[in-house]
Design a protein around this nucleic acid. Structure first.
Lengths: 303, 303
DNA sequence: ACCTATTACGGATTACGTAATGATG
DNA sequence: CATCATTACGTAATCCGTAATAGGT
């Protein structure tokens, strides 16, 4: 079965004549005739009766034309759908994201995207960075929102913006004597070397926040002795607030959480690398889809 | 678009692998690969993303598969429909008939046919014999029920049974003196030569009953002088009953009608050709459909 | 003779195979 | 090296045209 065959038969049925149909279809009349005969032979059943007043459909022919019309319509609808996809008037963008990034980024970016491309379906996949990388490789998501550094070298990424980390301390920490102020920040600065000997509240090693924390401690020459582990940044922050140990978190996450006891936040100098880079990641060997490109452009412009 | 193409893509989508799909489809793997590429090139849009874990559908690909599944189903349903047609478990029989024949024949034949082929749709087209012949030529009906002789030589026919004509007279006709009885009939016989000089009630020349009447009169050597015309056999019979003239009608139609005044019926001898032959007619150059053949068989056996 | 359907046949394109080549784990 | 996708290329089938034939007003 061919789309052409279907259209041939439908046209013959409409014109009740092979000659007229062949003219409308821009094929030679003998060819159309033999097409019809071939199709009838394939089904081993005449589709038309040849009368003086032209070709009239048999019962089987009516069934054929009915089916053919439905199929042609389905296919045409599909093709116009494709056009809409390439015009980005239709489509889907699946974004993988870590849980906190999602709440931070999407609240500003998604409304803008929706405004521009109201008929692009958006899907979110949440999970830890590592899962997001897997999803990218498996094409389960088109793009991923996560923090550098990326483990998998098959993934390309576009840095979007950096965010500073802060240390989280007990409100009335005995380290207060080492604080110093700077213009650029509402939070005091501290040299992380002073954390030597402190207890810590840290994420699990597979988490990106933990890797940044490790980096800070390493730069400060500290091997943490005693540490509590939690996978939740919010939990770590609250535990630090009540003096169970020092933790580290991105500054821009502070506004996401509330603790029963207000903690003390401290910035650290550049040299300790207390920051991470948010990036949008995608499979190196895949082409970015139109919607994905647009999403990235909007991210760059609005963050 | 080809049914094959659709099935190829659906299978690849199911198997997430060209190799496995090619095995299931009994085509070589390189060929399937190039088919996929060709189809993607035709639509200018990738249908799959190639990942380590196999081929996964793009958004466009999902639309394609969705459409393809619907089309394949439509086509398969159509094909099983064709089988049912050739098994006569499905189909249509359109029968052309003159109005009185319909009421006589169908009440006995249709119940039998329905019983045997409950899913064959039956359609009736009623009209004068001449119309029925046109319908046969135009393939508007599969078969026609009418009376010989047929005008159009392109029509074949199968005689089903003969029916005698009777003359219809006034109850107390002055011709009663010429009546004579015979074993074979409840009605008296009369020699139509005695109708010479009578008035007549006759159908219109295009009607088959009229042609039979003309034949009787010609055989009796009578040219009718005065005659009333009506297209209705029933009207003619009623008018004859009240003495407006002699009319002729098939004996088996008598039971169909009732008149206010009971008429007198008379048979005539064989030599005057006072009879007609009911036949089932069909286009000489068309093959009879299965249902048509069956209908004819049932007619022969039951009339 | 004229119009339309069917048959005969030839060249261009497509269908589909095998063998070879990359790419990837 | 083993597996899968892609490329290269050859043959058989088909697509679709023109020319000729037939059937019907």
């Amino acid at each position: 079965m061919t789309l052409k065959e279907l259209q041939y038969i439908v046209t013959i049925a409409e014109e009740k004549s092979i000659s007229r149909a062949s003219a409308r279809l821009y094929v030679s009349q003998p060819y159309l005739s033999q097409c019809l005969m071939r199709i009838e032979r394939q089904h081993d059943m005449p589709l038309f009766r040849r009368t003086q007043h032209g070709l009239v459909l048999t019962f089987a022919g009516e069934q054929y034309v009915e089916t053919a019309r439905k199929i042609v319509k389905l296919y045409n609808d599909f093709e116009t759908g494709l056009c809409e996809i390439s015009n980005m008037r239709k489509g889907r963008l699946t974004i993988g994201t870590t849980i906190h990034l999602g709440s931070m980024v999407f609240s500003t970016i998604l409304p803008i995207f929706r405004e521009l491309y109201p008929n692009i379906e958006l899907r979110l996949e949440e999970g830890p960075s590592q899962k997001i990388e897997e999803y990218i490789i498996a094409s389960k998501v088109d793009i991923g929102l996560l923090h550098c550094p990326l483990k998998d070298s098959a993934i390309s990424y576009i840095p979007i913006r950096e965010n500073n980390f802060v240390a989280v301390l007990h409100k009335d920490s005995h380290l207060e004597e080492f604080f110093y102020k700077k213009e650029e920040s509402p939070y005091p600065f501290i040299d992380p070397k002073h954390f030597s000997g402190e207890k810590f509240v840290l994420a699990y090693p597979y988490q990106r926040v933990r890797q940044i924390a490790d980096q800070i401690l390493a730069a400060a020459g500290i091997q943490p002795l005693s540490c509590l582990n939690t996978s939740s940044v919010q939990t770590a922050m609250c535990l630090s607030a009540v003096g169970l140990g020092v933790s580290f978190m991105p500054e821009n996450y502070i506004s996401l959480f509330n603790c029963p006891v207000e903690p003390q936040f401290c910035r650290m100098e550049e040299e300790f690398g207390a920051k991470w880079t948010m990036a949008v990641a995608y499979d190196s060997k895949d082409m970015l889809s139109g919607p994905a490109k647009e999403f990235i452009r909007i991210m760059k412009e609005n963050m």
